[in-house]
Simulated assay, not measured.
Amino acid sequence: MTPLPEHLRQANRARTQEAEKRARTALTELVKAGKPISFTAVAHRAGVSTDFLYRSPQLRTRIEKHRTKIGAAPPDAADPPNDASTSAVVRALSARLKRQQEAHREEAARLRKALQVAQGENLDLRRRLARYETD
């Protein structure tokens, strides 16, 4: 394989440096805004791939450092409040879901068994038909 011409190497280097600059800027903006830091968030904001961030040792180190600083993400505002009525509803729905799952499992097992019986009967009838046709 022939080496790249110098002008293409320079263009590649410039493109990489520009992408690194965008990633550093995106990381700084996310930190200042107090947003959760992740490789995906930085990549999306900078317009680069997550693979690019993982392959860049300096960017990777900075993102991991900021990611551990923030810790766990704050609770989502869409989470329901923790009151007794909500818990009771969740428990009731969970129990109902478990009963339905068990009923579906039993029905699937019953249908599987019926299918096996039907396939056995089908095979038996084919064998009997083959015996009559050869005579």
Rank of each mutant, 00 (worst) to 15 (best):
A84S: 12
N82S: 09
A14I: 01
F52S: 07
I70V: 15
E6W: 11
D76F: 05
P74K: 10
P3H: 07
E64W: 06
T16S: 14
D135I: 09
A92Q: 07
R67L: 12
M1I: 08
D83V: 12
T50P: 05
Y132E: 15
R91T: 07
P80L: 07
T61I: 04
K21L: 13
L93G: 01
T68D: 09
A26V: 00
L97G: 07
S38N: 01
Q101I: 10
A19M: 14
A41W: 02
A33F: 00
Q58P: 04
N12E: 14
K98F: 04
E29M: 04
A72Y: 04
E107G: 05
S87L: 14
R99K: 13
A88R: 10
D51N: 11
K98M: 05
Q17N: 12
F39T: 03
L30T: 01
G71Y: 00
K32T: 13
H7L: 10
R15C: 08
R105Y: 04
V89W: 12
A46W: 03
A108S: 11
K65S: 13
R45L: 05
S94I: 03
A92V: 01
R22G: 01
L125S: 02
K69Y: 12
L59H: 00
A77C: 09
P57V: 02
R91H: 09
K98P: 02
I70C: 10
E102R: 09
A23Y: 05
R91C: 03
N12Y: 13
R15Q: 11
A130W: 03
F52E: 05
R105F: 08
K35S: 13
T61M: 06
S38V: 00
D51V: 15
S49L: 03
T40E: 12
E121H: 11
M1S: 15
T68H: 11
T86M: 09
K69C: 12
K32R: 15
T61P: 00
R45V: 02
P81G: 11
Q10I: 14
A72C: 03
T50R: 10
A109I: 08
Q116E: 15
D51T: 15
Q119F: 06
E133K: 14
D124E: 15
R60S: 11
R13S: 12
Q100N: 08
A43K: 00
L27T: 02
P3K: 08
R55P: 10
E121T: 09
N122G: 09
D124P: 06
V89T: 15
D51W: 08
L115F: 06
S94P: 01
R22H: 10
S49A: 01
T134A: 13
A33V: 04
R55M: 10
T25P: 02
V42Q: 02
L4Q: 11
R105P: 01
L111H: 00
L53K: 04
L115H: 07
A43F: 03
S85N: 12
R91G: 03
H44I: 05
